[in-house]
Design a protein around this nucleic acid. Structure first.
Lengths: 146, 146
DNA sequence: ACTTAGTCTATCAACATAGTAGAGTATTGT
DNA sequence: ACAATACTCTACTATGTTGATAGACTAAGT
């Protein structure tokens, strides 16, 4: 399961994407609209800023805004930022690789083979899920519903 | 990431599958061979017994053995038993479904759509990964290595 | 009966998560 | 210049989960 923090981050990013032509958006606006505790949201936005996904402006008329193109921001990156590795086993993670203690021979490990497959497929799908893509899907689902 | 408990469970199950024609296997044997703290392993095996995957025999010559056919035991079931839902969002879990608080309309939620896709693909792959399949892959990888 | 071996209950330290509080600092508009 | 605005940083707390240990208890085989 992804953490609440990641979920908040995604919601905040989508909020910012939808309003990206309106200049900086107040933390308080995002907090209220997305029902996220404001103080908690602040730390999330700060992390996204450190990751160079968002930027902020201080003072009156300030707030947060997207730095990266929403086509370039995908769920795999956001999830890694807050929840760490996407892989289900440390030994199949590319970015957070760690050896399994119990495993005698990694190369011939049957479990590893399965989880490697799962990881690759998952990352592939999450990489495709950019902010733009998510909003696109939203529109598509709305139309189908009618 | 899957918990250590699940990893232990899988290793224990594979151990039992490989020795399934030798009658009941001692907890202590599994614990030593797979380097799992014995007391911790006991509770794991007990859970697997409650799930009707394993059975046990008490007294001298006792121990644990597979109840289900190793072709029928897959990683999805084992993971659910110890770590709960496989889905990354509660609202895309079939067995542990729960509504997202923040979500205004589930049917048109773009994020949900992505995570539903990920869940379905993951479960599909994990269901195929039976104990027999994992051992088969191990053999295949060993041959390729030579 | 005695031993072996599984079962049950309680407890523990370590860590992560979700959230709160408050002081501090930078920037902008007037 | 300066007050208001709004982001930044540090510390703390409650709660829950994970991984592990200890000990008493119960059932079965010889």
């Amino acid at each position: 399961m992804i953490s609440r923090k990641t979920k908040y981050a995604i919601n905040a990013l989508i909020h910012l994407t939808k309003r990206k032509d309106e200049g900086p958006i107040l933390i308080s606006e995002i907090a209220e609209a997305e029902s996220i505790p404001q103080k908690f949201l602040e730390s999330i936005l700060l992390d996204l800023k450190k990751a160079a996904i968002l930027a902020s402006k201080k003072g009156k008329g300030g707030g947060y805004y997207l730095l990266k193109d929403p086509k370039e921001v995908n769920l795999a990156d956001v999830m890694r930022l807050f929840d760490g590795p996407i892989a289900l086993l440390p030994c199949v993670s590319y970015l957070y690789y760690e050896r399994c203690d119990e495993c005698k021979d990694e190369e011939t490990c049957g479990q590893r083979d399965v989880f490697l497959e799962v990881r690759n497929k998952t990352v592939e799908m999450l990489k495709k899920a950019t902010l733009t893509e998510i909003i696109k899907r939203e529109h598509k689902l709305s139309k189908e519903k009618k």
